[in-house]
């Protein structure tokens, strides 16, 4: 890895590779059971109904802030220059029982501290965007609706 000052997910785990492959194509997906239709996240090799027919289902990429935290020092060198920054738990509009952790930003390219915590509240509407980090890793990032004018 050229830049050692980052933390990235492994993308070669057979259970989760589909999520990261879709992210590289700027699509947000969750698993959906081919038998019972239940959606789940994080990915698992099987459904609770007993089926192993897990497929990937693209969701709208819209969601709401279920909750959030604001990280302060001390933290890893990769994040030390960014504190304080918000990390949010997003409930998906298509499946509110599924929640993903992600950062908020004013645009796909903006820093993870670009949305100040004063501008964040539980229930805020957000839309996913995608940020390539390495050739393999593209991370979802969430753009608050209140920031959409900034994005224009």
């Amino acid at each position: 890895m050229e830049n050692k000052d980052i933390v990235i997910p492994a993308t070669d785990d057979p259970d989760t590779a589909g999520f990261w492959a879709a992210a590289r194509e700027r699509r947000l997906v969750v698993q959906r059971c081919g038998d019972c239709g239940k959606m789940r996240f994080p990915p698992r090799p099987a459904c609770t109904c007993g089926s192993f027919a897990m497929g990937w289902h693209e969701v709208s990429g819209r969601g709401r802030v279920w909750s959030y935290g604001v990280a302060h020092a001390p933290t890893l060198p990769a994040f030390a220059d960014l504190v304080p920054y918000v990390f949010a738990v997003i409930e998906l509009a298509d499946a509110p029982h599924l929640r993903m952790v992600g950062n908020l930003a004013t645009s796909a390219k903006a820093a993870i501290n670009s949305v100040p915590q004063d501008a964040v509240a539980i229930g805020d509407e957000v839309t996913v965007a995608f940020r390539p980090v390495t050739d393999e890793v593209t991370l979802p990032v969430w753009i608050p609706a209140t920031q959409s004018e900034v994005v224009q």
Partner: peptide, 12 residues
């Protein structure tokens, strides 16, 4: 499980 948390700065 860390893959869904740590890249987003949820470290501790």
């Amino acid at each position: 499980y860390e893959a869904w948390l740590r890249p987003f700065g949820m470290i501790r």
